[in-house]
Design a protein around this nucleic acid. Sequence first.
DNA 1: CACAATTAAATTGTACGCAAGTGAATTTTG
DNA 2: CAAAATTCACTTGCGTACAATTTAATTGTG
Lengths: 158, 158
Amino acid sequence: MRAQTTKTMEIPQEEKRLEKQLCFAVYATAHAFTRAYKPILDRVGLTYPQYLVMLVLWERGELPVKTIGEQLDLDSGTLSPLLKRLEQSGLIKRIRDLRDERQVIVSLTPRGEAMKGEIDTIMTAIGQAAGCTLQEMAEMRDMLHRLRGNLGRAGMGG
Amino acid sequence: MRAQTTKTMEIPQEEKRLEKQLCFAVYATAHAFTRAYKPILDRVGLTYPQYLVMLVLWERGELPVKTIGEQLDLDSGTLSPLLKRLEQSGLIKRIRDLRDERQVIVSLTPRGEAMKGEIDTIMTAIGQAAGCTLQEMAEMRDMLHRLRGNLGRAGMGG
DNA sequence: CACAATTAAATTGTACGCAAGTGAATTTTG
DNA sequence: CAAAATTCACTTGCGTACAATTTAATTGTG
């Protein structure tokens, strides 16, 4: 509510357009990223969301499903079947926690661990495809981070 | 290719972390946008991709399926069932073009047309939720545009 | 200790997103 | 003009996303 009289509170047409353009730009760029990654990830038999799960595991080691979900902002309805596929591919193990049997601990198999090196090279290619300087990438990433934080807190009164 | 020796060209471990990844920032922000829009769109019975189709039609009038796909970067495998749902909701019509019977022309029904005003007001809330200045929004939009262009042209040697 | 409330994961149902394939209409070529 | 190539939309199959429900385990409370 940062505006003036709130009377008819006309938001300039321009702002509406921009906001729509921005949300579409984010939407379309996300798809473009997925498509750019696809030929590379196809070679190792991963989808893009599966790759994100692997990133989390490479970085943080074994984790319960819930924590993976918090990292990626995904719920168990998405993760459960996805993790089952990664398990069938032989890249991860899923073991029920003995201390708390509600939890399932996800960890890398040797093959899953080994894939890290393979992929490492691959990530470089995408960075170059993006065709941005490191500084631009960092700037954009930080802006998106803030934007996402704001949207998350929006509530919006459903 | 703006780097030093390209020899082993080690990417620092730091840059590989999830939070440092631009691709993840885009991916997660896209989901955040969809979630922010959801409570609003629920009231009028639209999904976010359906809203994007309506935006195109409000802006450009009746269009063949192919053109809608070009605008939104979606193929007919996605659009065909989506458009069928919009038709069942009574918001659009689909009529096979008499001049070229391969094409299906999509147009708004009176109800679909009327929804434009309804939504327009409501959408203002999202712009404010984003919590960015106009300048930041424009900057981000332009950066994402360029990024998307680069990724699209990547090819990547599938 | 029993019993309600909470939590974690999985399941169900709906809707994208996209690759691959089908079928009908149009355009290109020989 | 007929055969081949192309185009457009639709369909099929797989893998996300996510709301809502279910099941099992743990925690909180009396």
